[in-house]
């Protein structure tokens, strides 16, 4: 299970992560962040395959991804 964390402080809502996610795991939020932009948000965490494309293109290093220990 992967955990995607998008830092709303750093995210400028450029949309690059959403555009380059091959699995549609991310989307742009309709809410406004404290920076006054529509930030990226996680649409479907379960869809994420951990390719890290989103972190690679993010100009603001706003995305962190980690693998959660299998917990049930």
């Amino acid at each position: 299970m992967l955990r995607i964390v998008i830092d709303r402080k750093h995210c400028k809502g450029c949309g690059l992560c959403v555009a380059f996610c091959p699995k549609g795991a991310l989307c742009m939020a309709t809410s406004i962040s404290p920076r006054g932009v529509n930030p990226a948000e996680v649409r479907e965490e379960a869809a994420c395959v951990g390719c890290l494309n989103c972190t690679v293109v993010c100009p603001d290093a706003a995305i962190e991804i980690c693998e959660l220990e299998a917990a049930d």
């Binding site: 750093h10 400028k12 690059l16 293109v57 100009p59 603001d60 290093a61 991804i65 693998e67």
Partner: peptide
Amino acid sequence: ISYRRPGALIDKVTHYCPGCGHGI
């Protein structure tokens, strides 16, 4: 699989425009 903000990058929001290559 994981990605973390690099340690050599200060935790400060840049002045760059959204999508700017400088940030990358």
